[in-house]
Simulated assay, not measured.
Amino acid sequence: MIEAVDRYTEMVRAKSATGALAPGSAEVYVRDVHTFAELAGAGRVLDDLTGEDVDEVLLKFAHKPDGRRSPDASGVPGAAGSVGSDGARLQSASSQARFRRSVSAFFRHAAVAGWVQLNPMSVATLKPKQRGGLRAERRALTTEQAEGLLGAARELVVAPVEVGKRADQRTELRDGLIVLLLAAVGPRVSELTRANGEDFFVNAGMRYWRIFGKGGRTRDVPLPRPVVEVLDAYLAEGRPLLDRGREPKALLLSWRGRRLARGDVQGVIDRVLARVEPERRRSVTPHGLRHTTATHLLAAATDMDAVRRVLGHSDLSTLGRYRDELPGELEAAMRVHPLLGSVRGAEIVEGGVAEAGPVEVE
Rank of each mutant, 00 (worst) to 15 (best):
E247V: 12
T218P: 00
L253H: 07
R210A: 00
P224R: 05
L59N: 02
V227Y: 04
V116E: 01
P71N: 11
G257T: 10
S314A: 15
Q145F: 04
I269D: 01
L156S: 07
L181C: 11
T292H: 12
V310P: 02
D6S: 11
E198C: 03
R244G: 11
A183F: 03
L177Q: 03
I211Q: 05
T143F: 01
P358Q: 01
M206L: 10
R217W: 01
H63G: 08
S104N: 12
L339A: 14
D66C: 13
R262N: 15
V157D: 02
E27W: 06
G84C: 02
Q117E: 15
E147G: 09
D243L: 03
A22Q: 01
Y322H: 05
R290E: 06
G352W: 09
G148Q: 07
A332T: 07
A152L: 11
G186L: 10
V265K: 05
Y29H: 08
L273H: 12
R166M: 08
T171K: 11
R89E: 03
A250D: 07
L297H: 10
A97D: 11
G75S: 09
L330N: 10
V112A: 14
R290Q: 08
L156G: 08
V189T: 09
D270Q: 09
L251I: 09
V349P: 02
G267Y: 08
A136G: 13
E3K: 13
A356N: 10
A306H: 05
G186E: 08
R262E: 15
D305W: 01
K165V: 15
H287Y: 05
A152C: 11
A73H: 13
T318Q: 01
R246H: 09
G114Y: 04
V112Y: 10
E162P: 02
D199H: 13
I269P: 02
V227P: 04
A333M: 03
F61H: 13
A183Q: 02
L58A: 04
A136W: 00
L260C: 07
D220N: 13
A79I: 00
L177A: 03
R308N: 04
E172V: 02
E147C: 08
G186P: 06
V116N: 03
V307F: 04
H296S: 09
S70I: 00
S16L: 00
H291S: 06
G78M: 06
H291C: 08
D315H: 12
D66W: 09
